[in-house]
Design a protein around this nucleic acid. Sequence first.
DNA 1: GCACTAATGCACTTCCATTGCATGCGTTAA
DNA 2: TTAACGCATGCAATGGAAGTGCATTAGTGC
Lengths: 121, 121
Amino acid sequence: MRLLIYRFLAEKQVAVTLSDIENAFDKADRTTLYRTIKTFEEKAIVHQIDDGTGITKYALCEKGCNCEIETDLHLHFHCNNCNETVCLTAHKIPQIKVPKGFVSENVNLVVKGICDKCSGH
Amino acid sequence: MRLLIYRFLAEKQVAVTLSDIENAFDKADRTTLYRTIKTFEEKAIVHQIDDGTGITKYALCEKGCNCEIETDLHLHFHCNNCNETVCLTAHKIPQIKVPKGFVSENVNLVVKGICDKCSGH
DNA sequence: GCACTAATGCACTTCCATTGCATGCGTTAA
DNA sequence: TTAACGCATGCAATGGAAGTGCATTAGTGC
């Protein structure tokens, strides 16, 4: 089961919602998928993405994806056209300056727009 | 009613959830507050913030807060300690580079950590 | 006062995230 | 061989937030 879910995530190049997984595995129960994902999260196999659609998505952690590190520098791109969210691990987030007294531990950056597939390039 | 809500938002220096407003106005109905906020949003009086807690928050737009512009460069700080989210309008977001084929329309940047109140400075 | 519009309140629905409880299955220990 | 245990799975139910339809009330202009 977990292997199947892992492969599903590996094939998908985009972040998926729980519903996506649910639809892909009709046989399995919501709860199982949910808990599997949670397990993956704990083991730092996948990471959670909040792209502003209100639905949490998940994506496999790749090389260079240091989710476990506190100063996580993730960049996610959400397409307003196809509604897909991709993980741009190659693009690092520039250092963000915060005012005095503030301590930065984590940065979440979501860029919205049109993705490469939809823009036609 | 709307004036009361406006004043409430003005007093608060942090972004608030619908529940926060609801608690502050026991007399009023949820729907009224909800629709009032929506109206404010349309009129660009407040803007919505998604700080990753899963609950959408709202904050007054200030001078220099160009929510209405597509290339909205907002920086929000979410404190992991007191769970409050503040709007750092003074801090602009640096230009984000996206890969070829991607078109950036909107940027959402949330920094998490410890705020000035909680860090003791 | 009358009519019209805007604002408010109530009830209901939907959607997603999460949890409690029961079941099944494989492994270990008596 | 069997009893006990841990773990994965499934079903059902809960809770919280967002959103909507409809009736009622409050204003506003005439």
